[in-house]
Design a binder for these strands. Structure first.
Length: 577
DNA sequence: GCCGTTTTCGGCCCGACTGTTTTCAGTCG
């Protein structure tokens, strides 16, 4: 997604929050929210667009288009600036705490003068909230729990998508600097961890100075934290730290290996080096006695001299990858190019942003062999789905399918798993879909026993082929369900239900560790984007990264299979109805 | 603030849950 769209989305969302906090008209706040989302998910770059072009985006009218133009020209919006003066930034921060919304945030600010999460935590500890109308003991507990979640999952870390966008911009800029032999990001980003603390960027070049200067001069760089001969650290406007290291070209492989980590993986590789009379550092693999370098230019050489094949970065977590490699049992990991189609996506018939035709065209452009459209079923009442509407969509999709050579369209739905495990369409209606995803969207607080029964029952429905975002966690917002997932994984294996690896950067659900656990039950997986706009289809890379961290092969993942094999999987068990 | 085979006003995605209340406001999906 382009940078301007993201910036505009952020500033409009901020304005929506400020309107809501200041007690403005609710529909006005929602109009800004809607426009923010629409621009964020709009496929074309809004930079350089005029009022007329902007107004063609659904949800953007005269007033918002004018504000966006003002922002694109000057980097600021007068009305937003005025709203910022009224409401301290810290008050807006409060609504990031789960269970706190704009109304409560304003009460806390007006009655107690609270304008930061730290002050809020302190006020709860001092029991100052209890006397406020609408606040009680449970509210205090929920707020403390919410702050804890925010800090634990956040902890200064950002979502992988945020870090990836930034890292790719930086790498592209540094590749353009004269004398650049190689440039890449390393660290936890290269290992595809779900959240990223800081970005490590490496350059191979003879002279370091020009790259250090180039990084410091990037428009995203807010401040230079450290500026040395070998390493420069900056903080971006989004508060993300970037460490740049420039290596001599002959040390590239050793440096990349060292700075990719993880620390635990490196300790293990260094130990192997020692046993072979070698010493491994960021400058190279060398003979412990003579100091002569024996390998350093590529990672393959470094691993090779340690008696190992090259190990893909997502596996470098010291989870037994080296021992497995030595036994010749390291999996051949699924890769993004193995993915033949997406099996969980939405359109504007429910809460997606783009029409069916646009989503299908964007999927075709990605070279997919098949593509499933899975809009929400009626239980998510806000989507107002009906049998008539989804059947009309099916007719449109079938007609579209006839026009698309090379890509087959599948008609599906994302069902809601009710509190008792029931689904929101009867079995005979479900039989008409090519693929049914079923997911939990509410009632997260049931007992572990009830949650487990509920999910297992949904998997036992013969029409359910994919369990969508199985734990329903949202990174930094909500923990996963407290269900017995070993029982769920066993049920999926028994019923032929694939577990989703949802690729949305806020979800990544299942996560790497759950995938490792589930795989032992012999379950299949589906790596899906859960796209709500054409710009979300590429999120798939994060799902693939997560799957790699979970040691999945292409064969484990049903949407790497040819369509005939996938269809057999989707049809299996339907006789049990 | 946006939108319109309801077109310049009057609707706007709706329902459930929670914790606080004693009839409902706030939050969430």
């Amino acid at each position: 997604m382009s940078r301007a769209n993201e910036e505009v989305e952020a500033v409009l969302q901020e304005y929506a929050d400020l309107i809501a906090i200041s007690g403005g008209e609710g529909f006005r706040a929602r109009a800004y929210e809607k426009a923010a989302r629409a621009i964020g998910g709009h496929p074309a770059d809004v930079a350089g667009m005029g009022v007329d072009g902007l107004r063609e985006i659904p949800g953007v009218g005269r007033s918002i288009a004018a504000k966006v133009v003002e922002y694109l020209r000057s980097g600021r919006i007068g009305e937003v600036e005025r709203a910022r003066e009224e409401i301290p930034a810290g008050v807006r921060e409060l609504i990031a705490v789960p269970t706190l919304g704009p109304r409560k945030a304003m009460v806390l600010h007006e009655e107690l003068g609270i304008s930061s999460v730290d002050q809020l935590a302190e006020a709860v500890r001092a029991e100052r909230l209890r006397d406020l109308k609408g606040f009680g003991e449970r509210t205090e507990e929920n707020i403390l729990h919410g702050i804890d979640l925010l800090r634990r999952a956040g902890g200064g870390r950002v979502l992988i998508s945020t870090a990836m966008d930034e890292a790719e911009r930086i790498v592209a800029a540094l590749l353009a600097v004269g004398g650049c032999v190689r440039c890449a990001y390393a660290g936890s980003l290269r290992r595809m961890r779900e959240t990223i603390g800081d970005i490590d960027v490496l350059v191979a070049a003879e002279r370091a100075g020009p790259f250090m200067d180039a990084l410091a001069a990037l428009p995203d760089t807010a401040e230079v934290i450290a500026h040395g001969g070998k390493k420069t650290s900056v903080r971006t406007r989004e508060g993300l730290q970037v460490d740049l290291r420039v290596l001599p070209p002959e040390s590239w492989g050793a440096g990349l290996q060292y700075f990719t980590g993880s620390k635990a993986h490196n300790i293990r590789t260094r130990r192997i080096a020692v046993r072979r009379g070698l010493k491994l550092s960021e400058y190279g693999l060398s003979d412990a006695e003579t100091g002569r370098t024996v390998a350093s230019e590529t990672e393959e050489e470094v691993y090779g001299r340690l008696g190992l094949p090259w190990i893909p970065p997502p596996l470098r977590e010291d989870r037994g990858e080296i021992a497995a490699e030595l036994r010749g049992e390291l999996p051949e990991l699924v890769e993004e190019r193995d993915i033949r189609g997406d099996l969980h996506t939405h359109t504007d018939l429910t809460d997606g942003l783009a029409p069916l035709e646009d989503m299908v065209a964007a999927a075709a452009a990605r070279g997919y062999a098949y593509y499933a459209v899975t809009d929400h079923a009626p239980d998510l009442a806000m989507q107002r789905m009906t049998a008539e509407k989804i059947l009309a969509q099916r007719a449109r999709l079938r007609a579209l399918d006839r026009r698309h050579r090379g890509m087959r369209l599948l008609h599906g739905t994302e069902l809601n798993i009710g509190p008792d495990g029931g689904l929101d369409w009867p079995d005979d209606f479900l039989a008409g879909f090519d693929v049914c995803v079923a997911s939990v969207h509410s009632r997260f607080d049931q007992s572990p026993e009830a949650l487990t029964r509920r999910i297992v029952r949904a998997c036992e429905n013969p029409h359910v082929k994919i369990l969508g975002h199985p734990t329903t966690r949202r990174i930094g917002r909500r923990p996963g369900l407290d269900a017995d997932f070993d029982a769920v994984f066993a049920a999926c294996a028994r019923t032929g239900t694939a577990l989703e690896v949802n690729s949305h950067p806020e979800r990544l659900d299942l996560c790497d560790e759950d995938i490792l656990r589930a795989k032992r039950y012999g379950v299949r997986f589906a790596i899906d984007s859960d796209a709500h706009s054409t710009t979300h289809l590429p999120y798939l890379r994060y799902g693939v990264g997560t799957a790699q961290r979970g040691w999945l092969t292409a064969d484990d993942v049903i949407n790497t299979w040819p369509l005939t094999r996938l269809r057999r999987f989707l049809a299996k068990g339907r006789g049990r109805a």
